[in-house]
C-alpha cells in the first residue's frame, strides 16, 4: 500500500467507514458552538439586559469543549493513520496541538465565567477572540489535510464512480 493510501483508510470503523470519516463531522459542533458563543458575547454588550446572552454563551462554550473532546478522540484515530515523517503528519501534529490549546483556552474561559454578569467582560471576550482565531488556524490546517492531502478522503477511482451519467457507458480514463 502506498503511504498516501494508508492515510485514506480508517484504522478502525470507530473512526468512520472508508470515505465517511467521523472527525470532520464532529468538528462542526465546537466550531458552531464557539462562533455562536462569540456572537452572544458581543451581543451581551449591545443589548440592555444581556444576562441571558452571557449565560447562553457559557453554555455554548461548555458544549463546544465537550464536542471538541469528542472530535479530538476521532481525530486521534485519523492521526495514527498518517505515516510518520511525512509533511502531512507534521501538519496533523500542528493541527492537533493548536486545537487542543484552543480547547484548553475555552476550558479556562468556561471556568472564568462563573457568576451571573449582565454582560460578558472584556477579559473573557478577548480570551474567546484569541481562541477563535486559533481555531481558524487549526481549522485551516485541517482543511489542508483533507482537501489538499486527502487524509481520509476516498481515492480517485472511487471518486470517479460519482461522475458516471446514468445510462451512459462507463468512462475509461
Amino acid at each position: 500500500m502506498r503511504l498516501m493510501d494508508s492515510a485514506k483508510q480508517p484504522v478502525t470503523t470507530l473512526a468512520g467507514s472508508y470515505g465517511h470519516p467521523v472527525h470532520p463531522a464532529l468538528v462542526a459542533v465546537p466550531i458552531g458552538a464557539w462562533i455562536a458563543s462569540f456572537v452572544f458575547d458581543v451581543a451581551s454588550r449591545l443589548v440592555s439586559d444581556g444576562h441571558f446572552l452571557a449565560e447562553g454563551s457559557r453554555w455554548l462554550i461548555g458544549l463546544g469543549v465537550l464536542g471538541a473532546l469528542a472530535a479530538a478522540l476521532a481525530g486521534f484515530l485519523d492521526l495514527v493513520a498518517i505515516p510518520p515523517g511525512t509533511r502531512a503528519f507534521r501538519i496533523a501534529i500542528t493541527h492537533m496541538s493548536i486545537n487542543l490549546t484552543v480547547t484548553g483556552l475555552y476550558g479556562v474561559g468556561f471556568a472564568l465565567r462563573g457568576g451571573s454578569a449582565d454582560r460578558v467582560g472584556w477579559g473573557p471576550l478577548v480570551l474567546s477572540a484569541v481562541a477563535l482565531a486559533g481555531l481558524g488556524v487549526g481549522g485551516w490546517l485541517g482543511g489542508t489535510l483533507a482537501f489538499r492531502y486527502g487524509v481520509r478522503v476516498a481515492d480517485e477511482a472511487t471518486q470517479r464512480t460519482g461522475y458516471v451519467r446514468a445510462g451512459s457507458p462507463e468512462e475509461d480514463s
Binding site: 500500500m1 494508508s6 483508510q9 484504522v11 478502525t12 470503523t13 470507530l14 473512526a15 478522540l73 484515530l77 495514527v80 493513520a81
Partner: peptide, 24 residues
C-alpha cells in the same frame, strides 16, 4: 499494530474502543 496485515493479536477496534471509552 494498527495497520491491516499486522501480525498482532490485538484488533484495532478492540484497542481503540478501550481507549475511547476510558477517555470518555
Amino acid at each position: 499494530g494498527h495497520r491491516p496485515g499486522s501480525s498482532g493479536r490485538l484488533s484495532p477496534t478492540m484497542v481503540f474502543t478501550h481507549l475511547l471509552l476510558a477517555a470518555v
